Simulated scan of single mutants.
Amino acid sequence: MTTFVLLHGGGMGGWTWKYVRELLETLGHKVYTPTFTGFGERSHLIGRDVGNATHVQDVVNVLRYEDLRDVVLVAHSYAGTVAPGVIAQMGDRIASVIYLDAIVPHSGERIASLMGYVPEDQLAGLDAMLDAGEGPIGSGVDAMQREAAKTHPHLMDPDREKWLLDNLSDQPMKATACVIPVGAETIEKPVDYIAAAITVMTAMHDRARALGWTIHSHPGDHALLVGDPEGTVELILKITASKGAA
């Protein structure tokens, strides 16, 4: 039996792991799917001060108060910016790390600029505005994902895609604009990276390779955990078994 802590992507929540969680639990594993402050069922807590530090603390507190040890930490998408901070604080409780088509940040970067969406100087100005209690609370990532799906539908059953899109929530602007103080290059543990074939994360795959991480390919898209939970679980368990932890 393995203990998994599954971290969700932008605009999502712990709910997005529903199908993966059910499969893992059926096999006897213990699974935790925390939702970051300001997302999903915690969307009522969104605020201008909710950023990377808050989300790192969300996960650190789950590990601490649930007294979790020998954890396999799995980070999808946005959570790739949160995982390094969690590992820096709680590394002795984490057995292995898996990035699931996730962002690979370097220390000092900001999500929107490292992804090429907003110039660094503009983003720094926006971050300062948020610190002053002004500016947009949310980033509109949920609306952007719904709009993108109109022209590029996800590789999944239409009913399941509707479930995914209907449940998306906004992402705190602070999380998008703030500096990520602890980057992926600080992770001293071996990391396995699952790279989706159809994704906006291709540059992140290159970053993972540059860090010497082990790359595993998946034929699906960025929402593979919802579109192909069976294949996602198979890969996660294969990786975990190779570490002697499954």
Rank of each mutant, 00 (worst) to 15 (best):
A112W: 08
A112S: 14
S113H: 03
S113K: 11
S113I: 13
S113Q: 09
S113G: 09
S113A: 10
L114I: 12
L114Q: 07
L114E: 03
L114H: 10
L114K: 07
L114P: 02
L114A: 11
L114W: 01
L114C: 14
M115D: 07
M115C: 13
M115N: 00
M115R: 08
G116R: 00
G116Y: 06
G116M: 00
G116W: 06
G116I: 03
G116V: 02
Y117T: 02
Y117N: 06
Y117R: 10
Y117Q: 04
Y117W: 07
Y117V: 07
V118D: 08
V118L: 13
V118W: 06
P119T: 09
P119R: 13
P119M: 10
P119E: 08
P119A: 11
P119D: 06
E120D: 14
E120R: 12
D121R: 15
D121W: 12
D121K: 09
Q122K: 13
Q122V: 03
Q122C: 01
Q122W: 07
Q122E: 07
Q122I: 12
Q122D: 07
Q122P: 00
Q122Y: 11
L123A: 10
L123I: 15
L123R: 03
L123H: 02
L123D: 02
L123W: 01
L123M: 11
L123P: 02
A124N: 01
A124C: 07
A124D: 00
A124V: 15
A124E: 05
A124W: 08
G125F: 00
G125M: 12
G125I: 09
G125K: 14
L126M: 15
L126D: 00
L126T: 00
L126F: 13
D127A: 15
D127I: 06
D127W: 06
D127Q: 06
D127Y: 10
A128Q: 13
M129P: 04
M129W: 06
M129C: 09
M129V: 08
L130S: 04
L130E: 08
D131L: 14
D131T: 05
A132Y: 06
A132N: 05
A132Q: 11
A132H: 03
A132F: 05
A132L: 09
G133W: 11
G133K: 10
G133D: 06
G133C: 05
G133T: 06
G133E: 07
E134D: 09
E134F: 07
E134G: 08
G135R: 14
G135H: 12
G135Q: 10
P136N: 01
P136G: 01
I137R: 05
I137Q: 03
I137V: 14
I137T: 11
I137C: 02
I137L: 03
G138W: 02
G138I: 01
G138R: 05
G138N: 10
S139T: 12
S139E: 04
S139G: 15
S139Y: 03
G140M: 12
G140P: 12
G140E: 12
G140Q: 03
V141S: 01
V141F: 06
D142H: 12
D142Y: 01
D142M: 01
A143V: 15
A143H: 08
A143S: 15
A143L: 14
M144V: 13
M144G: 01
M144A: 12
M144N: 03
M144H: 04
Q145L: 15
Q145E: 09
Q145Y: 09
Q145M: 15
Q145H: 05
